[in-house]
Structures are given as structure tokens and as C-alpha cells.
Design a protein around this nucleic acid. Structure first.
Lengths: 332, 332
DNA sequence: GCAGTTTTTGCAACCCGTTGCAAAACTCTG
DNA sequence: CAGAGTTTTGCAACGGGTTGCAAAAACTGC
């Protein structure tokens, strides 16, 4: 039923090769035959079959987009950016949801079966083995928004998390907070420990050190229970640096539920600056990740990695900035 | 480099066909050869190339997942459900973001080039032509969560929007509201007009009729500006039925910004029951769509459609329920 | 142990393109 | 206009599988 190369060739009165070449950028075809072919193709509504061509070219233009952050609204923004950037680069995202742990390996196998040209991992909480599987198969991998720990030689794009932690520390100190806490995301993520390191370093120069807590996931609920626990354990802490906005919002609600007023009784600063952080009823002071730039850089890296696998082991760190809203008290 | 059928056949001392058959469910292979092949395959780490086989079978197990709702946090939940359900059904989602209008046709063409087995449209605001393109190409299409208007013969799964509107109306009346409004999503969506119809019908039996406003998108901002406008235009309205939770939250903030207290001065009821609606600082009374069921039914329908295209023109309507929180005044 | 069935197997053609190679068709010179 | 150089073209093989068909092997029952 569908029109093939053959059909077009027959109609245009040329060989299959001629048709193939007209649709291959940079191939040698005379203007005359090209015109004939294009006419015939248009008349027939021909459209080359990417999958068939992938057999010989080894390229599918498919990119695996792996994540397990489906409870963090920030990631809808991320998916929005990624899908657009990939489309822009003529790559197609094959979305893999690794939230359900069990079928992880199955999904990864699957990606290999589809001959994806590359893989983008958009999550800081996925085990490094994932990246390894692809890396070993010669498929370029880019980690965006953080990675697990010492992942193998992949591309990596994120903010400078140490710096982000440092910025949080100086901001809190600047606001006169002295007893402060760190409420991180899942402990396994390298992002979390980098942020903590920077945070501690920033405090240390003032001879301070933070209370430390971790949420079990990047979600409202996880933030809420973690903060409830933290408020019981260390009620004297005056301000918390939360490793993620959605965790911060959960934390904020936990505090309010215990009768604390924000920012009067308790300060909070998040990280990401998801759109929701700017909603009236949230108004979260936070540290902004330049998501569009991170995404652009990631797609760039994956493109380069596809073109030349040797180019890949590369790291891009981008700066982050403070966004002031209403969850820290004013400078005194 | 990668292991092929050939390699396995050679190692197992059988023909290519034998190997192919071992990996084809329902093909005729003796237990003995199967064992030999499986052993060889395991030793070599063989994995069939789906793309190559798709050439002859015409099946790719790829499903286009089309949406343009990347500003509505509800859709992160939807994507979560869809990716999992599709993975469960051994189908792979090729995610298409149609937010940027310009490249719509390009993306659709692309999906056809990839020989997707089916297409799921998860949006109520996409023009019907989209579905038509695939339908004409013989690719099964399922609309989930609403459709544009009289789309061609596709599968359709959603709540009964008329009933939802009706439920909103009776709920508001039950709470003693008499001057009520409808703040719908984009006017073009059939879901919006169905909800409005049901809403009006419900009011009519009490001789009431609503003020009517539309937001330009399913987003916080759109809800906020629409409600700001509405409050100026018709300040006397006591309660609004919003066509979507995120619109409702935007609306709520607009009202609060004008000094209205909720629910004392103004009632609001949303639709969807996204997770966020249950957050402390939101606490939105809303009508729940059974998202998991809608997704399950959609995937089911697409599977049937793939197996037998004739089965498709089908409609599944699911019931919705009221979820009470804090944005409507108590029954008087 | 033999004829008749049923199951298993391999061959070869096919799916839809791409590409190396050599022949054919052009261009350009002198 | 012959000869050299350049471009364009078609042939045929190939990529990694699937599948119809006929031959081979394995069962049946007597």
C-alpha cells in the first residue's frame, strides 16, 4: 500500500539509486533527474521509510529520553524543553519511564533493540549502570540535571551544584540565619551531595554547620514527611535549604501545618525555580537552574556524540542565580 | 559489531530461519533446536533488531504520543500513566510535542516515516485534521481526555463531560450558590462545550444560567488572567466552575489578589483532581477524572486497533466523581 | 517395517532502502 | 573533434530480518 522508492523510480523513469540520491543530502544527482524524481515523488506522495534506511546507514535519529521523575512538576517543563529541542535537531524522543524499578533492564534492552542513536538521562537518581549499558554498546549518553556518582564517560550537563549550595549558604547567612538545615533530595544523587558540600563550605567560613535531612524522593509528599520529621527532631533550626522546589513546597506545608509562619518563624529556600514557585500561593524563594540552557547544551552534546563518539566525555557546568520571593525574611 | 541472526545461526549450527523462528512467538520449532539456538544467542548476547524485522512484518511497536499540554501539571501524571501502560503493553511511546504550532505537520509526517503502529492523542485542543492524517494512512488513532469536535472515526476515551458539567451544577446549587459562572478551557475543545452544556442543563432545572468565560490555555497564567477579567466584568458571580484544575488555581489566585476570600466570598470548583489539588496550600474542591482508567482503556483500544483496524471507531465514557476540599462553602 | 501424517527445517525471495563500483554521459581543452 | 577529466547513472550486493514452499525428519497406526 505505501509508496516505495521503486514506485517513484518507475514513475520517474530512473533507477532506484537516482531516487535514493535525490533524498540523500550531498549525493550526486543532476538537476534534471532531481526534478523528475521530485515531481514523481510529489505526485505519488512518497515519503522515505526511515527505518529501512536505518538498516544500511546505522542511524535512526531516535534518542532515548530516560527519566524517573514523574512526580516532580519541574520535569514537565524539562520534557517540554527536551521534546522541542530534539524535534528542532531532527531527533525523536523515545520516552522511557523508569519509575517502576522492576522493568528497568527490559526498557534498556528495548532501547538497544531500536538502535537509538543516543540516550539522554534526565534524572539524578538513576543508578550509573544504566549509563554503562549504553556506553558499553557504543551509544553516546548524556546526563542532564545531575548524575548518580562516578558514571562512566558520558556527557554531563548541569549547574555547578557546589556553587548552588554555596549560594544558598551565603544567602541564608546574609539574611541573618544562623541555625540552618539542609533538606536534600534522595541521598544517592551526586547532585545532592555536591549541594551539601557547597552548602557546608559556605557555612563553614562563618563557623556554622547545618542540620541534615534527606527526602526519599523528589515529590511533595516526600518533602512534607521529611520536614515534619525534621521539625520534630530539630525545631530550633531557623531556615532550611531544600534540594528541590517541590520538596520545598511539601516542606513548607508541613511547617505551616505545625503552626509555623513563613518566613517569620521559618525560612525556606528551594532549588530549580520551577514555574510553580512563582505562583501567588507559593512564592518560593529559590535558586534557579537555567533549564533551557541545560537542555540546549545536552542536545548539542548528544548531537556531537552521535557525529563523533570520541567527542563525548565532556562536562558542561552552568551558573545558577538567586530568585527572591517570599520565603526568607528580609535582610536585617 | 552487533550480533546478527547469521552469527547465532552459525554458532548454533542451524539456518537463519530456525533462529528467526525461535524468536517468533507461535512459530514452529522443535524443542531441541530451540534449546540450541537459545544457548547460542545467550552466549553471543544476541538481540533481534526490531527495526529490521519491522521491514517485513510492518509492525514497529512504536506508538506516537501526541500532546500540546506541557504547561498543565496534570499532564505529567498523564504521561506517567501512559508511558507505564504502554511499556506494559510492549509498546514504545514516541513523544511529540505540538505546542509550537509551526512544525505540526512536520512532526506528523515524521511519525508516518517511522511507521508507528498507532497514535494516541492526549489533548483536547488539537485540530481534528491531525487525527485525519493518520486515519487516512490507515493508522489507528485514539483520542484520550477529549477531542476537538467531530473528529473522524477514531477511538475515543474520556469522562462523560456533559455529566461532569451537570455534576458541577448540582453541586453548586446544593451549596446554595445561585449566581454562578463557567470558566472553561480553550473554546475550541469539544470537552469544553460538553461541560458547558451539562452545566447549563443542570442549572436550567433551577431556572438559572451561568456567566461564561474562557481561558485561552490550560495553564495557571491563562486561568489567572481570565478570572481577573471575569471578576471585573461580573463581580456578582458567587461561584465559578473551572474547566480544569490548573485554571482553577490561577483563578483562585486572581480572586485572592483582588481581596476575595475563598470560599467565603467566592466559591470555586475545578475539574481533573490533579495531585496538586490535594496539596495543603491548594485544597481545591474538584471533579475527578479517573485518569488511570482512561489511560488503561486508551491503551487497550490502541492495541485492539493495531490488531484489527476495523475494531476501532469506538467510544468509551467513564464516570467522574466529586472530591470535596475547601473551595466551596459548606451546605447551608 | 511400511505407508501415511504431521512437524520441523532450510532455501531463496522479499521487505525498503543505501552505496561501491564501473560504465555512460557530460564538459572542457587544445 | 579526439582525448582527458569530471559528473551522473544504473547495477548489484548488502543491511538484518521474515516467510512461503517444498524437502526432510519425526511420528502414527497397523
Amino acid at each position: 500500500m505505501p509508496i516505495t522508492l521503486q514506485d517513484v523510480a518507475a514513475r520517474a523513469g530512473v533507477s532506484k539509486s537516482a531516487v535514493s540520491r535525490t533524498f540523500t543530502p550531498g549525493a550526486s544527482v543532476s538537476a534534471k533527474t532531481r526534478a523528475k524524481v521530485e515531481l514523481a515523488a510529489k505526485e505519488l506522495g512518497y515519503m522515505p521509510n526511515v527505518l529501512a534506511s536505518s538498516l544500511t546507514t546505522g542511524r535512526t535519529a531516535l534518542v532515548g529520553l530516560i527519566s524517573n521523575n514523574f512526580t516532580n512538576p519541574y520535569f514537565l517543563e524539562i520534557f517540554d524543553l527536551f521534546t522541542r529541542a530534539l524535534q528542532e535537531a531532527d531527533l525523536r524522543p523515545l520516552l522511557i519511564n523508569l519509575s517502576a524499578e522492576e522493568d528497568a533492564s527490559r526498557s534498556l534492552l528495548m532501547l538497544r533493540q531500536y538502535n537509538v542513536d543516543g540516550v539522554i538521562v534526565a534524572s539524578s537518581t538513576l543508578p550509573p549502570d544504566f549509563a554503562k549499558v549504553f556506553h558499553d554498546a557504543g551509544i553516546p549518553v548524556v546526563h542532564a540535571f545531575g548524575w548518580s556518582s562516578d558514571t562512566p564517560e558520558t556527557g554531563r550537563v548541569s549547574i555547578d551544584n557546589t556553587e548552588a549550595g554555596h549560594l544558598a549558604a551565603t544567602t541564608l547567612i546574609d539574611r541573618g540565619y544562623r541555625r540552618v538545615g539542609f533538606l536534600g533530595g534522595p541521598q544517592s544523587a551526586a547532585t545532592t551531595s555536591d549541594r551539601l558540600d557547597g552548602f557546608c563550605a559556605g557555612l563553614k567560613s562563618h563557623n556554622l554547620s547545618p542540620e541534615i535531612q534527606f527526602a526519599t524522593a523528589y515529590s511533595y509528599d516526600a518533602g512534607r514527611v521529611a520536614m515534619a520529621r525534621a521539625l520534630d527532631a530539630t525545631p530550633e533550626v531557623e531556615a532550611w535549604f531544600c534540594g528541590d522546589d517541590v520538596i520545598a513546597i511539601g516542606a513548607m506545608d508541613a511547617a505551616v501545618a505545625q503552626g509555623r509562619r513563613i518566613p517569620d518563624d521559618l525560612g525556606l529556600i528551594g532549588l530549580n525555580d520551577m514555574r510553580m514557585a512563582g505562583w501567588d500561593r507559593v512564592g518560593l524563594t529559590t535558586i534557579r537552574q537555567p533549564a533551557p540552557q541545560i537542555v540546549t547544551a545536552s542536545v548539542d552534546l548528544i548531537r556531537k556524540g552521535i557525529a563523533d563518539p570520541a567527542s563525548l566525555p565532556q562536562k558542561v557546568l552552568l551558573p545558577c542565580t538567586l530568585v527572591e520571593r517570599g520565603t526568607l525574611r528580609a535582610r536585617t
